[in-house]
Nucleic acid binder design. Structure first.
Length: 284
DNA sequence: CGATCTACCTGATGGC
DNA sequence: TGCCATCAGGTAGATC
C-alpha cells in the first residue's frame, strides 16, 4: 500500500504529535509485527521512558529518533515499515481497539499511537542508534531519496547508464532510488514517456532528464496531497482520513480508461508478478 | 549481473 | 446466499 508519498505524509502528520513527547507505555501483541526482536516485550523495554527528538523517513521506512530515560540515555531509533497493509493511528487511549492492532505506544498524556496491520507484513522495531545500520541493513543500503536526499541530474544520468535493467525494475529497486513503489513507478514512467520494459542504458538524455524531473516532482506533489488512497481506501492518514492524490494519478489502476493526454486506452501488463499500467501511445 | 518465481498474510471483489 | 479464484500500495530469498 504505502510508498514514499504515503510514508512522508505519515511522517509529517506524526511529527507535531511526537516530537518532545515521552513514551510511557508500550504493548506489543503481534508476534509477527515485532519479528526482529528476540521476544515480544523487548520493544517495550527499549522504548519506555524514551523522549522523541525527531522523525526521519528513508524510502518507505519511518524512523523515529529518541533518547532513552536518564539512566540509559542512549539515542534510540524506532523503525516502522508499513509494507502492504500497515496503518498508524493517533488515538485517545480509550478508543476502541481496531482488529489487527499489533502495537500500542502510550504517550505522556491520554493519547497513544497504534500500529494496525491485517496482513502482518509490516513491522515495528527499535534499537540503539549505534546498532541500527547493522540490525536493519536494508536502510543503510538504501539509494538516494527523492525528497530527503536528491542527487544531481548529472549523477542520476551516470547512475542510469551504469545498469542494464528494465526501467521499471531500476525504479523499484530501493538500493537505486528509495521509496518508489508500484504506483509512483508507473506514474514516473508515464511522465517521462518511457515504457516500463525499456533498458536503462538505452534511454536518451531527454528521457533521462524527464525521468529525473518526474522522480523529484511526483512524490513531492503526492505528499503535498496526502498520498494516494486507492479503490479499497486501505491507505489512511493518522486520523483515518483518505489521501487526495488518487485524483491526480495518470495511469495507475486506470486499465481500459482513456489516457488523459492522447485519449487512447491505458494498458495493463504483468511485470515482475504484479501489474503495470501504461499508455502504449505516449510511452516509448 | 539480471529476470522470474515464491512465500509471507488477510480481506475485498467478482464470477458462477 | 455461498463458494471459489484472483488480486492487492512490499520485500527477501531461491533459482535459472
Amino acid at each position: 500500500m504505502p510508498e514514499i508519498a504515503e510514508v512522508e505524509t505519515l511522517r509529517r502528520d506524526l511529527e507535531p504529535v511526537l516530537v518532545g513527547r515521552t513514551i510511557v507505555d508500550c504493548v506489543a501483541t503481534g508476534e509477527r509485527s515485532v519479528r526482529r526482536h528476540e521476544f515480544l516485550g523487548e520493544l517495550a523495554t527499549l522504548v519506555c521512558g524514551a523522549q522523541v527528538t525527531g522523525l526521519r523517513r528513508v524510502g518507505k521506512y519511518l524512523l523515529i529518533d529518541a533518547v532513552g530515560d536518564t539512566a540509559t540515555s542512549d539515542p534510540l531509533v524506532i523503525m516502522i515499515h508499513l509494507r502492504m497493509s500497515g496503518q498508524v493511528f493517533h488515538v485517545d487511549r480509550s478508543a476502541q481497539l481496531a482488529k489487527h492492532t499489533h502495537v500500542r505506544v502510550g504517550l505522556d498524556g491520554n493519547d497513544e499511537i497504534r500500529f494496525v496491520d491485517p496482513r502482518t507484513f509490516g513491522e515495528v522495531f527499535a534499537c540503539r542508534s549505534v546498532d541500527f545500520d547493522r540490525l536493519v541493513p536494508s536502510v543503510a543500503a538504501m539509494g538516494w531519496d527523492p525528497l530527503a536526499s536528491p542527487v544531481s541530474k548529472l549523477a542520476f544520468g551516470r547512475q542510469v547508464a551504469s545498469v542494464k535493467r528494465h526501467a521499471k525494475a531500476f525504479l523499484l529497486d530501493q538500493r537505486q532510488v528509495a521509496g518508489l513503489g508500484n504506483i509512483y513507478t508507473d506514474e514516473v514512467l508515464f511522465a517521462a514517456k518511457v515504457r516500463h520494459d525499456r533498458r536503462t542504458n538505452s534511454l536518451t538524455p531527454r528521457e533521462v532528464g524527464r525521468m529525473y524531473r518526474a522522480i523529484l516532482a511526483l512524490p513531492a506533489d503526492a505528499a503535498n496531497n496526502g498520498g494516494s488512497s486507492l479503490r479499497d481506501q486501505q491507505y489512511r492518514r493518522l486520523y483515518g482520513e483518505i489521501g487526495g492524490y488518487q485524483h491526480h494519478l495518470q495511469v495507475f489502476d486506470r486499465a481500459s480508461q482513456p489516457c488523459f493526454v492522447c485519449g487512447r486506452v491505458i494498458e495493463r501488463a504483468a511485470y515482475g508478478g504484479r501489474s503495470t499500467f501504461f499508455c502504449g501511445h505516449c510511452q516509448h
